[in-house]
Simulated assay, not measured.
Amino acid sequence: MRTGPRSKALISAWLDFQPPAQREVAVSLRSAVREAEPELEEIIRWGQLVFVWSGSPLMAIAPHRGHVNLQVFNGHLLPPDVAPLEGGGRGTRSYRCRLHQPVDVVQVQMLVAASVARAPRPEHIGLPRDEPEPGEP
């Protein structure tokens, strides 16, 4: 499987490339995500800063003209009261952060924790479907 570049210099360059208002929000979001789950890997993919859990993309920071989204790829699995997420169906949900407004760090950290809790664990990845998961009778 091909993965995106992971160098810290590339991630810093991606942040520096953002316009000042988007950069401020993206840096705050990145900090909140990293505080909530330091084991997430960071890569640049699809022109976004993507956070990876167990080899699978979990969430991404996606700057837009008037806001910055924290896209949650397994957002459809999260309880609706975790955070105000936009989107529907079985797809990605987005947590919108407006420019020139502080990022709600606690809410972002709760969102990250809920998303990681719903993500497949590394020891469960690759198990055949007919075998029970570890700890099941």
Rank of each mutant, 00 (worst) to 15 (best):
P5R: 13
P5G: 14
S7R: 12
I11D: 00
S12I: 01
D16W: 05
P20Q: 09
E24V: 11
E24D: 11
A26K: 03
A26R: 01
A26G: 04
A26V: 06
S28R: 13
R30I: 03
R30S: 01
R30Y: 00
A36S: 12
E37H: 05
P38D: 08
E39L: 04
L40M: 03
E41C: 00
I43L: 14
R45L: 14
R45C: 09
G47L: 14
V50D: 01
F51V: 07
G55N: 09
S56T: 13
P57H: 11
L58W: 02
M59C: 14
M59P: 07
A60D: 02
I61N: 01
P63F: 04
P63Q: 04
R65F: 08
R65K: 15
H67A: 08
N69G: 05
Q71K: 03
Q71E: 12
Q71M: 10
N74G: 06
G75I: 05
G75S: 11
G75L: 06
H76Q: 12
L77G: 04
L78V: 10
L78F: 06
P79C: 02
P80Y: 06
D81N: 13
V82I: 15
A83L: 08
A83Y: 03
P84G: 08
E86D: 10
E86T: 11
G87N: 02
G87F: 02
G87W: 01
G89Y: 06
G89K: 09
G89N: 10
R90V: 03
T92I: 14
T92R: 06
R93P: 03
S94W: 03
S94M: 11
C97N: 14
H100W: 10
Q101C: 08
P102N: 14
D104M: 07
V105Y: 02
V106F: 05
V106E: 14
Q109R: 15
Q109K: 14
M110Q: 13
L111H: 01
V112W: 03
V112A: 06
V112D: 05
A113N: 11
A113L: 12
S115C: 10
S115E: 08
S115H: 08
V116W: 06
A119C: 09
A119Y: 04
P120A: 15
R121K: 15
E123Q: 10
E123W: 03
E123V: 09
I125N: 00
I125H: 00
G126K: 07
L127N: 05
L127G: 02
P128A: 12
R129G: 03
D130F: 01
E131C: 02
E131I: 12
E133C: 00
E133Q: 07
P134A: 13
P134S: 10
G135F: 10
G135Q: 10
P137N: 08
